[in-house]
Amino acid sequence: MTDPSQLDPEYDRHGGFPEFEPADPGPGFGRFIAAMRRVQDFAVSADPDRDTWETAADRAEELAALLGPFEAAEGVGPANRVPNLPGAGSLLMAPYRMTKFQADGVEFTVQFSRFHVGGNSAVHGGVLPLMFDSMFGMVIHATGRPISRTAFLHVDYRNVTPINVPLTVRGWLDRAEGRKAFVKAEMTDPDGKLLAEAHGLMVRLLPGQP
């Protein structure tokens, strides 16, 4: 990976992006994220009685009150900054695990759960563009290109994406033309069957662009 400032002297001025340095919030954060993922699953699948829902709401409100005073700016909290946790400790992303991060390609494994179901035990189609968009950003970072934003993202759904199955996602830089980076990615199941593939355009930000 090259120093992006060598490609773009204005790199540090693009939109004021915060520096996302790795965080070490302690083991409690990992336990919290794991528990919250289970809560997300139950939030879309549980069917208890009314009293249980009242109790669950009380506890959720207590948790919100506990964490409320500690709300921090982007890039300050540990979410998305703990590489050794699934999804880097972000609930926004499905719990992926990085297996390759090189200039010639990025690869991670991911397993979707009940929270991601759109219907008939299949992952919601809208979840996959989020995953591919994140992969595209990882590819840009791995290749050492300057900060970029997604100009377009196209997804082809080849087969139904299952839950509770470890899947592999691969992404790579197809070609670069000045500020433009054309990126591709694919997702396969354990047998190598193609589930979805994507291609997109990432454009380097100009000075001052958010």
Score class of each variant (00 low, 15 high):
V123C: 09
V123K: 09
V123G: 06
H124I: 06
G125K: 08
G125C: 07
G125I: 03
G126L: 09
G126M: 11
G126D: 10
V127R: 11
L128S: 03
L128A: 02
L128G: 07
L128M: 13
P129G: 11
P129L: 10
L130E: 09
L130V: 15
L130Y: 11
L130R: 14
M131K: 05
M131V: 15
M131I: 15
M131N: 11
M131C: 14
F132D: 03
F132K: 04
D133K: 07
D133V: 09
S134F: 06
S134H: 14
S134Q: 14
F136H: 01
F136R: 01
M138R: 12
V139H: 04
V139L: 07
V139K: 01
V139W: 01
V139M: 06
I140F: 00
H141Q: 08
H141T: 06
H141E: 06
T143R: 07
G144W: 01
G144H: 03
R145S: 02
R145Y: 04
R145I: 00
R145C: 02
P146F: 00
I147G: 08
S148Q: 06
S148F: 01
T150H: 01
T150N: 02
T150Y: 00
T150I: 01
T150V: 05
A151L: 10
A151T: 11
A151R: 15
F152E: 12
F152G: 12
L153H: 13
L153N: 14
H154T: 14
H154K: 13
D156V: 13
Y157R: 11
V160Y: 12
V160Q: 14
V160P: 11
T161G: 00
T161F: 04
I163G: 04
N164H: 13
V165I: 12
V165Y: 10
V165Q: 13
P166H: 05
R170N: 11
G171T: 02
G171M: 01
G171Y: 01
W172T: 05
W172S: 08
L173Y: 03
D174W: 08
D174H: 13
R175D: 05
R175L: 04
R175I: 02
A176D: 10
A176V: 11
G178T: 09
G178H: 10
